[in-house]
Simulated assay, not measured.
Amino acid sequence: MKRTSMFLRGFRRRTGRPAVELAVLFRSIVDQSRTVHPVAADFLNHFMDGAGETRTLSQRWLRSFRAIRRAERKNHRRFERQLAREAHRLDDGASTWLNDHWDARINAFIGTELFYVSRMSLLRSQGSFVLTRTGREVTVSGTVRHHWVDPYDWDRGRWVYIPRHGFVPIAVGRDLVEADEARNYLMESRHVQTLEGTCRDGRWPRRGRATFVWALVRKNP
């Protein structure tokens, strides 16, 4: 009956339960999740510590998830189409710069550890490129700086399913913040990629071809 009551309260803005009881629930989630989802447990623990300091995620850990790589590729394709159009307009012997950014919304897959850290987030990709035409071919090179960001706030949705704990109302997090037992904070991660490519004009009626190669800039250990 107690679990059913808590589930129903997940559809309300508040749980109506004492903050001490809710804190015990979240602390137990932290303790029991460390062996299964250690990163998610660490970030929930940071929420409970109440410091509110920004946390930076490892780019290797973050990019290990398909949802993140899909968002990255989505922005890649946007840049590639944009560069191909710009190359087509470029006169022989001319060069030009292209600076722009694209945002990709991310929805983590249910059951992955990313889901328990960040269900919905944003990847902003800021690109800077130079294009140079020589005859029918345009060479492209540039850098894209990716910035992943998401507020850790327990303020979206109704409830979340947590292994060993069942359905936990999102309102638990809101109540803890209001009781000053926890504090929201910002999560972020940054990584850089380079782009090298060529855009070659086609002879009518054939269309032109574009080839792009992306490479991750590795951080020094």
Rank of each mutant, 00 (worst) to 15 (best):
Q126G: 01
S121Y: 01
G135Y: 05
W148H: 14
S121N: 01
Q126K: 11
R124W: 02
E113G: 03
R124L: 09
G135R: 07
V140N: 13
F115H: 15
Y116F: 15
G142D: 12
H146A: 09
G135M: 08
R136S: 14
V149F: 07
P151Y: 05
F115D: 14
G127Q: 01
T132A: 14
M120Q: 09
F115T: 05
R145D: 13
V149H: 04
H146C: 12
S128Q: 15
L131S: 11
D150A: 15
G135L: 09
T134W: 04
L131E: 03
R136P: 09
T132C: 11
S121M: 01
F115S: 14
F115P: 01
L123H: 07
E113L: 06
W148P: 08
P151H: 09
V130L: 12
V138I: 13
T143R: 02
T143M: 00
T139D: 13
E137W: 00
V140A: 11
L131P: 08
R145M: 11
L123W: 05
Q126Y: 06
V144E: 10
S125F: 04
G127C: 04
E137M: 04
R133Y: 07
E113D: 10
V149G: 00
V130C: 12
T143F: 00
R119V: 09
S141M: 06
T134V: 13
V130M: 13
L114H: 06
E137P: 00
V149W: 02
V117L: 06
G127D: 02
G142M: 13
S141P: 00
F129G: 02
E113V: 04
S121H: 02
V130D: 11
S125I: 03
V138L: 04
R133M: 04
G127M: 03
T134N: 14
H147R: 15
S118P: 00
L114C: 06
L131I: 11
S128R: 15
R145H: 12
M120F: 08
F129Q: 01
Q126H: 07
Y116A: 06
H146L: 02
R136Y: 01
H146S: 11
L131R: 08
L131Q: 09
R124T: 15
S118K: 00
E137S: 08
T132Q: 15
S125D: 10
V138A: 12
V144R: 12
R136Q: 13
S125Q: 05
H146E: 02
V144D: 09
G135D: 04
L122W: 00
E113C: 09
F129D: 01
E137D: 11
Y116L: 03
H147L: 15
R136C: 02
S141L: 02
V130G: 06
T134E: 14
M120K: 12
